[in-house]
Nucleic acid binder design. Structure first.
Lengths: 211, 211
DNA sequence: TCCAAACCTGAATAATGATTCATATTATGT
DNA sequence: ACATAATATGAATCATTATTCAGGTTTGGA
């Protein structure tokens, strides 16, 4: 069900020639660069266009308004993250719960670390944007992927996989987000890398039933 | 060491009469109300003043600029949260680790739920503000309080309390933040209320040494 | 070579918003 | 009651920004 907001968030026109695809790419990149270099408050359409090496008018050819641009950039980033997590989930299917747990945490952490700067830059954007649709879709996809691996565990089963998957996702995402996207240093990220696996394994073991 | 930003963030003048204290209160409240009712994008000095029932000029008598206002409002909220957590920590000192764990999680969750709306409103503000100083102070105070209770545990001791306290704090805060401050429903908060205690107890048990 | 579609340009428009300041009102101590 | 410090006012100023549009340039194919 396309929300009303879709009408104003969808791209105005779709690129047909190679140069315009490059333009859109440049605009995406520029958005993140401006965000990183100047902060969310100074993220203006003009500045983005300038940095991308195109005119404002060009920007408006592909994005009906600033919000649509931000939405697109954010979606792009989130989709990338989700892909990685889903891939990890598929790779871990059928292993023991210990392996699955460690693998999931590692994948999530890795994915976030890979896009450290982008993630931090986009954090600020998320706030001033209606995240409803994106967030929901995101949660759903990740949630289902995690449920799937958990169910596939070789040695255990869960009373309520849905709840367990949700908890796992929210906890790891929340912790990583709190540390990386805000002021946290990479050093603190390392603490997470060593502690989160312990915590997740402990939790999963606590709520699992032997098969 | 007062940062350079302090100069422009500190109140321009301190209230001396009762009416001005009331004014400042009204401004704080109005800020949150506007945030809640109109969103971060429409949070303007004029609107806040209007809602507070004072003129813009009055606002600028107490806050040198918009940022200072937001900083003050955010600090106020965070301090309130920290107080509650610290209080809980003090009350839990000397108990068994199981009791401490459950108590901490409950206190954190409770504190956040109490200020559900405010927290969500302020989430957006945090992004467009330099949170460095606040965030750091916040983490430090909570971290120390948690370290203290953990150390006081009757039945166990920890190899590295600092790391454990950090992990606990970040995980719980992150998970709760992810669910409450963003699109999450109260229903999801309930899941957290039942699962987080399990997870934290499992983690603490896993890393603790018997005394 | 030529044209229609695709693409690009950037000054102009129209709003909006943060911040100031000269002036007016109110409180407090004497 | 008076003087003085506190507090409040809000139109005016100065800047910034999202968005448009009338017209240019480039591309791919016939």
């Amino acid at each position: 069900m396309p929300a009303a907001s879709d009408r104003i968030l969808k791209p105005r026109k779709t690129p047909r020639q190679a140069r315009s695809e490059a333009t859109v790419e440049a605009i995406f990149d520029a958005t993140i660069q401006v965000l990183l270099a100047e902060g969310a408050a100074r993220l203006t359409t003009t500045r983005v266009a300038e940095r991308a090496g195109v005119s404002v008018g060009t920007m408006y050819q592909y994005f009906p308004n600033k919000q649509a641009l931000l939405h697109a950039v954010l979606k792009r980033h989130l989709d990338g993250l989700i892909d990685k997590v889903e891939k990890a989930c598929r790779a871990l299917a059928g292993e023991t719960i210990a392996v699955i747990s460690d693998g999931l945490v590692a994948a999530y952490l890795q994915a976030k670390m890979d896009s450290f700067d982008t993630a931090r830059a986009l954090y600020a954007v998320g706030a001033e944007l209606d995240l409803g649709s994106l967030q929901a879709a995101n949660s759903k996809r990740v949630g289902e992927a995690v449920m799937a691996v958990l169910t596939s565990a070789l040695d255990v089963r869960f009373e309520d996989v849905r709840v367990v998957a949700f908890t796992l996702h929210v906890t790891v995402a929340g912790a990583v987000g709190a540390v990386l996207e805000r002021g946290g240093s990479r050093a603190r990220a390392k603490i997470l890398a060593s502690e989160l696996p312990i915590m997740c394994r402990a939790y999963l073991t606590a709520v699992a039933k032997r098969k």
